[in-house]
Nucleic acid binder design. Structure first.
Lengths: 263, 263
DNA sequence: GAGTGGTCTAGACCACATT
DNA sequence: ATGTGGTCTAGACCACTCA
């Protein structure tokens, strides 16, 4: 026999999945469920509801009740700013909600000098003693934070340059790096999926049960030296991350077994 | 004043972060904490611990106690099978644990014919009535599931072909598609980050507080028609997703403001 | 058998938003 | 004022693993 709190969660989850509890609708109150399942200590009911909260399916809105979560993904497209839009993207714009709904963007920028974390130090191939500059941005749409974006570069490279000004650089910070002799020509993207830290919950105003993607971009100059590491933290409930790929014909000749797309 | 259960969670979280509770170590028992925080109803202590469980930081191992989670990421590299390894990847192989530790791979394959979900239907541009074939794979390393991989193709395309055999196809299913006149030349990758369904928890043997990445690959033939949709579900605690990018020089000329890598 | 966490009972007082 | 969920108390019995 399944525990009561499991049954409560399973029943409600199914009702959410099959549409009988659509997004935005109100769930039964704890008292309702207590009665309905003949149990009751409130804690049993609450345990069941907390499962759904941690799955990101429902949200408690005190003191109104629990509600089925409504989600509206934005498109997070790491390639967006340096690629023309290929035709296959246009095919999907209608799938990816809210892409066109121009809202008011804003961002905070802070610049400081810090000791690099291990993650940053390894990717920038720094020695123990070297310091880095960090450009932290919190990006907002209509006041709502949707993205944390921290860029790290060796202090010796960017010191005194516009890269370190805590304001928007109209021609782009990457252009600044190019003027410093480090044009960015290659990137390695790593995406980690995890639950947020309490700090991230606060800065991104995340609801419970919302995982984040940590997108680490290491960019390289033409001589293969790493120039900059950017760490983007994007909330899982508000984004879809999109990449596009075109087959390299050379590789196809060499590796006919290529299981392209399937792995 | 912060609630007691919050203080318990915050204190333990900090000890995990600063290394005084290293990965694999045992946490104080509920009884210990009950005493230490002067509270005690067990439920208060358990509420605090459950926060950490849902953040993926600790795992209860009945009846031994709670333990700090140990993680060992694998590399999930959607491009791995059709690109030569560029030099910047080699730079990082030492960062990405367990890449070289060849373990015994295995997979289950099931093939069936189904009505497509909305997601699949839209991406394959199918009409209401069309059916699809699905090739479901559960991939394992040393018996442990690490990846669900479901590929969908229009039934009219793959019916009767080797694509539909529920065994490994040595030359690759994409080669089969090429022989059917649909060589795959382009892909669109979408990555969604979310908490797993109970079904996924079961199939991937996920611990609590483990988010998943759902990686949807739509592949296209040379005529831009969609051929196949593959849905990969990868556990967040066991993987890092890696992409690589090389700048398109044409675009650089046209768009000097390109903020490459930083967004 | 002892100790652990898993489940459940039957209450209590509180903060908060809406009525 | 009412009703909601948030926090907490003080117990109970159980299943499981390990010594």
């Amino acid at each position: 026999m399944k525990p009561i709190y499991q049954r409560i969660a399973d029943d409600l989850r199914e009702q959410i999945a099959d549409g009988s509890l659509p997004p935005g609708s109100k769930l039964p109150t704890e008292a309702d469920l207590r009665e309905r399942y003949g149990t009751s200590a409130r804690s049993t009911v609450r345990q069941g509801l907390s499962l759904l909260v941690n799955e990101g399916l429902i949200v408690p809105q005190r003191p109104k009740g629990y509600f089925v979560r409504e989600i509206r993904p934005l498109v997070y497209r790491p390639q967006s700013e340096f690629r023309r839009k290929p035709p296959e993207v246009d095919i999907y714009t209608h799938l990816l909600a809210a892409e066109g709904d121009e809202r008011r963007p804003a961002q905070d920028i802070e610049v400081s000098i810090v000791e690099p974390s291990d993650l940053v130090r390894k990717r920038l191939q720094l020695t123990e003693a070297e310091l880095v500059a960090v450009r932290r941005r919190t990006r907002r749409l209509d006041g709502e934070a949707y993205n944390l974006n921290d860029s790290y570069a060796p202090l010796s490279l960017v010191e005194g340059s516009e890269w370190m000004t805590p304001v928007d650089v109209p021609r782009g910070t990457n252009q600044v790096l190019a003027e410093l002799g480090k044009e960015l020509v290659r990137a390695l993207d790593e995406i980690y999926v995890r639950m947020p830290t309490p700090e991230e919950v606060r800065r991104l105003q995340l609801g419970p049960g919302t995982p984040v993607a940590e997108h680490v971009v290491t960019t390289f100059a033409a001589d293969d030296s790493p120039v900059q590491v950017t760490i983007n933290v994007v909330p899982g409930d508000r984004h879809v991350i999109v990449f596009e790929r075109v087959k390299d014909p050379q590789d196809f000749e060499q590796r006919p077994r290529s299981n392209w797309g399937a792995e």
